[in-house]
């Protein structure tokens, strides 16, 4: 369990780093939105910038929630054991695998990054990639729900 405790501590550090990066990027996005030349900027430019800002804020909020949750867990032996069991539970691992994890998550993150980059050149590609990510995550969530009910 000590090994897992170290792993959780490392996760807190990673989440703190992510929250910090999100904070810096968030401020930069706000600065960019304020200084955006509204006469020269197209609707798609501001839309992509807004999407990027929303994504950064979401990552920041999720990282902070993760830090709070893990900090509360690390000091409680029972909670730590429950978390360990949840992460190593064979049934949940099977369900996650059936739902496409971890490849769905990896491809979704890569597609979102690609969408943001592509959004500055072609808004159609941006919409296509975002819709594709939403579709694959929805299918994965549905499969997961179905497996949770039947397994």
């Amino acid at each position: 369990m000590e090994k897992f405790r170290t792993k959780v501590k490392r996760r807190i550090v990673i989440s703190s780093g992510m929250a910090l990066v999100a904070l810096v990027l968030g401020f930069y996005s706000i600065y960019s939105l304020i200084t955006l030349d509204s006469s020269a900027a197209t609707h798609s430019d501001s839309f992509v910038a807004g999407f990027q800002f929303g994504l950064i804020i979401s990552i920041g909020v999720l990282a902070v929630i993760d830090i709070i949750k893990l900090s509360l867990t690390i000091n409680d032996e029972t909670k730590l054991r429950v978390l360990y069991n949840k992460e190593h539970d064979e049934r949940l691992i099977t369900i996650r695998n059936k739902a496409g994890a971890p490849m769905i998550i990896i491809t979704s993150v890569l597609m979102i990054i690609a969408a943001i980059i592509a959004g500055y050149f072609n808004i159609i590609v941006f919409y296509t990639l975002v819709i594709a990510v939403a579709a694959q995550l929805s299918v994965s969530a549905m499969v997961k729900l179905y497996c949770m009910k039947t397994m």
């Binding site: 054991r81 360990y84 069991n85 949840k86 190593h88 539970d89 064979e90 049934r91 949770m148």
Partner: peptide, 12 residues
Amino acid sequence: LEVGTTRQTITS
């Protein structure tokens, strides 16, 4: 908790 799994798995 004793056998290293979740309550839902025991139920299943």
